[in-house]
Design a protein around this nucleic acid. Structure first.
Length: 780
DNA sequence: GATATCACTTAGAAGGAATACT
DNA sequence: AGTATTCCTTCTAAGTGATATC
């Protein structure tokens, strides 16, 4: 492809442009050119991975940036692209381009009022948050001790009581007739091995089970368990020869049976479940009852890694009480471990917020049992998160100005730093920490590699990489000229595919840099800030008019803009393609119905065709083949309906022991004959015959019917568009994590939209603090 | 001062519940 | 009334980032 060509062209351009740009830049460029990345200095070519960043370069930056630029006028040097890129896909967002220069606040002081309100609301809930009140900007006044103490997170609670965790039920063996087969022969397995076989068998029809890596990992671990437990009477060598179909069928059957339970049975089961869960659902936190989040220990199973995860399919082993550490108040009663077991460890650590913890065997990391999202402790930290993002408002101009300047620094490291911050700010990239070989290959800003961006002069960049959860990030955008130049330099030979673009910086350094601008500022704060800022801007564009439903639609459109900014996607549901097709077919059929009605009108009053030519102009729009196709589906559907009804009737008749209807019964024959007639009629119409008009119909009645159909066409079209727009965008994540909930509350109050329409029950619980503190004038 | 450890937030998939459709 | 579709919750994987440790 032309990409290598591009590169050549580009590197030529580097020299040219840098010369043109006067002495400053040209020195910079030449310095940058021979300022080789460490990885290359150390060992010739080698792949990236240089964690040893040259510190000589670090010193000057830290110094330089440390200065706080309070006196800055704050005129934004930031590229307007920010907006353009974000909103392009959203029709309703178009206008936002026009007013990005709303830099209302001159002084940050304003926010104190609403903030205090929020703090007050929290106090009503007895949230221990004395520090928050002071957590204000006012940077000039320097270091604030209480913030530091806060960040240290010294003490998170005074007292803590809970009942431990709920373990998953023990393994329930398969019935004796359900077996795994190998090479056609039944296999006798130990219970442990059978359980593992069951994990795979149950998911036989999923995509996971068809993934070769998943299969290989599963198979390896399965064999291990067999070996460990002396678990098989047949030597199993070849995965392909394993037949799980009987096991799969068994689980299918169980699922079916569960569905068929009566209402009462389901209710009884639910109550039983509740009863068992009851003790674990809540805990006592500083004497208050609080909900616990994930009190259930994760059951064993096969690890479902996302994307191309090297370990997907591995056996996630059962967790026993001996592996679990409980964290509980020193004076509290220690819950009893399940019979025959004991806890691994008991801690009384009040500097952390988890109630229990265990080590997981896939990545050897920790799993925690924590408070629910609605708990006060989570609420406080959520509140703080958004307040930190809000504080960024009064620093962001200076930060943008500074990194814009730093884009031209003579130090490679500074240029990388500035460019990275630019990308994080403008395109909402994540920080991008280093990842290991035993994880999926995904990247964020700092871990972007050569192959993840394509440069198209003069300033177009195409991003194409897999981000968190292996979600693809694909965007063609225009960037700041200097950023473009820098990216070109970062890609310069000898760098090649596989090499880090940003080989002089990492998230730790980047965050250190950001803290120089503002305390508590890290890369992720930019996502929160830009998401909430975008939401505020989008909400500002919505006129206060229309029905509640219409306003909700507009709110969702604003929400969608944010989701797109943050690249929150969902995989297109399995049936999406076909359901779009369905709606399209429905639309065509509606069109046909409308046209047919209009033809009928003309049958009654042919003169109208010329009198109201506009109204009738579309009657010839339908292509003959299309019409024929529609006729066909309509007729087929009617026949099907007759047969279906027959079947239903037959079931009743069977119960009553009466004679069963068949296709030869008179009743059915009669119905079918009618449909046959209709089919002939349609055929005749296709060849130019006039449609038959029922006697009682008048022009007015027909016109009314046309109107009804037209309305249905409009709503169906909208529905289709909405479906397509939303098919791969997930609104929930931004609503839950990025959009300051007080914005939603503000919208609810200002636009008289019940909060229930905007927040689900869970979100209302989680954001109680916001619902009670923000009013219709609240601003992010 | 690099690396390991730990604790926390953010994320989409899956499955169940609620609602719409016919 | 039964089924299809959408909405919501649960689950747990996958990030970020601070700190402890060697």
């Amino acid at each position: 492809m032309s990409s290598s060509e591009d590169e050549i062209v580009l590197s030529k351009r580097v020299k040219k442009t840098s010369k043109k740009n006067g002495s400053m830049t040209s020195t910079a460029a030449s310095e940058l050119d021979d300022d080789l990345p460490l990885s290359q200095r150390n060992n010739g070519v080698v792949k990236s991975k240089d964690t040893s960043v040259d510190e000589d370069y670090e010193e000057p930056i830290a110094e330089k940036v440390n200065r706080k630029r309070k006196s800055e006028n704050g005129s934004s040097t930031v590229p307007k692209k920010t907006k353009k890129v974000k909103t392009e896909t959203d029709a309703s967002a178009k206008k936002s381009d026009k007013e990005p220069k709303q830099k209302r606040e001159t002084k940050p002081k304003k926010e104190t009022k609403s903030k205090n309100a929020a703090v007050k609301a929290e106090k009503d809930e007895d949230v221990p948050t004395s520090q928050n009140e002071e957590k204000d900007e006012d940077e000039d006044e320097g270091y604030k001790w209480w913030e530091a103490e806060d960040v240290d997170g010294v003490q998170k609670w005074e007292t803590l009581e809970h009942n431990g965790v709920l373990f998953p039920p023990e393994y329930e063996p398969l019935p004796s007739h359900v077996k795994l087969y190998y090479d056609g022969k039944p296999v006798k397995l130990s219970l442990e091995a059978e359980e593992v076989a069951g994990f795979y068998g149950a998911m036989l029809e999923t995509d996971h089970a068809k993934n070769p890596v998943f299969q290989k990992n599963f198979f390896g671990d399965f064999l291990d368990v067999i070996k460990e437990t002396n678990g098989s009477d047949v030597e199993i060598k070849d995965f392909e020869k394993l037949d799980f179909s009987k096991i799969f069928a068994h689980f299918e059957k169980l699922r079916e049976e569960k569905k068929l339970l009566t209402k009462d049975q389901k209710k009884a089961m639910k109550e039983e479940k509740e009863r068992i869960e009851e003790p674990y659902k809540t805990c006592l936190f500083n004497g208050h009852k609080e909900l616990v989040g994930n009190f259930r220990v994760e059951p064993p199973g096969l690890f479902r890694g996302r994307g191309a995860h090297p370990r997907t399919g591995k056996l996630k082993r059962r967790v026993y009480p001996e592996m679990v550490t409980l964290n509980i108040g020193a004076g509290a009663k220690i819950p009893e471990a399940p019979p025959g077991h004991s806890w691994g460890e008991i801690k009384n650590d009040n500097t952390v917020t988890w109630l229990a913890m265990w080590r997981e065997n896939i990545a050897d990391s920790f799993k925690y049992v924590r408070f629910a999202a609605s708990s006060s402790i989570k609420g406080v930290s959520d509140f703080k998160k958004f307040e930190t993002a809000r504080r960024l408002r009064s620093h962001v101009d200076a930060i943008r100005k500074d990194y814009t300047k730093m884009l031209k620094s003579e130090l490679m490291q500074d240029r990388q730093m500035a460019s990275a911050i630019y990308l994080i700010d403008v395109f909402a990239l994540r920080a991008g920490g280093e990842k290991g070989d035993d994880e999926a290959d995904t990247v964020g800003c700092c871990s972007l590699r050569y192959e993840h961006i394509t440069l198209k002069p003069p300033n177009k960049v195409i991003f194409d990489f897999l981000g968190k959860d292996s979600i693809r990030f694909y965007q063609e955008v225009e960037v700041d000229k200097q950023v473009f130049k820098n990216l070109r330099i970062f890609k310069k030979a000898p760098k090649q595919p596989g090499d880090d673009l940003f080989d002089r910086i990492n998230p730790t350094m980047l965050n250190k840099q950001l803290q120089n601008y503002m305390k508590g500022l890290t890369a992720k704060v930019f996502r929160t800030y830009n998401a909430s800022k975008t939401m505020q801007d989008q909400l500002d564009l919505i006129p206060n008019e229309g029905t509640v439903a219409e306003k909700v639609v507009k709110f969702n459109a604003a929400n969608r803009t944010v989701a797109i900014l943050c690249n929150h996607q969902r995989t297109v549901s399995k049936g999406h393609g076909s359901s779009v097709q369905k709606i399209n077919d429905k639309l065509k059929e509606l069109m046909w119905q409308k046209i047919r009605l209009k033809r009928m009108i003309l049958v009654l009053e042919p003169k109208l065709k010329n009198k109201q030519s506009h109204y009738f102009c579309e009657i010839d729009d339908l292509a003959k083949e299309d019409e024929e196709h529609i006729h066909h589906t309509v007729i087929a559907r009617q026949r099907e309906q007759v047969l279906k009804k027959m079947q239903r009737d037959n079931e009743k008749l069977k119960l009553e022991k009466q004679e069963i209807l068949t296709e030869k019964s008179d009743e059915i024959k009669e119905k079918m004959a009618k449909i046959d007639d209709l089919e002939k009629e349609y055929k005749a119409e296709l060849n130019g015959a006039k449609p038959e008009v029922k006697k009682n119909l008048t022009v007015e009645k027909l016109q009314q019917q046309v109107e009804v159909i037209e309305n249905r066409i409009v709503t169906t079209t909208l529905q289709l568009k909405d479906k397509e727009d939303n098919s791969e965008v997930s609104l929930g994540t931004s609503k839950m994590n990025y959009i300051d909930p007080r914005l939603t509350v503000m919208f609810s109050k200002k636009f008289d939209v019940p909060i229930e329409k905007l927040f689900t029950k869970t979100l209302r619980d989680k954001f109680k603090w916001a619902i009670e503190s923000a009013d219709e004038n609240w601003r992010f």
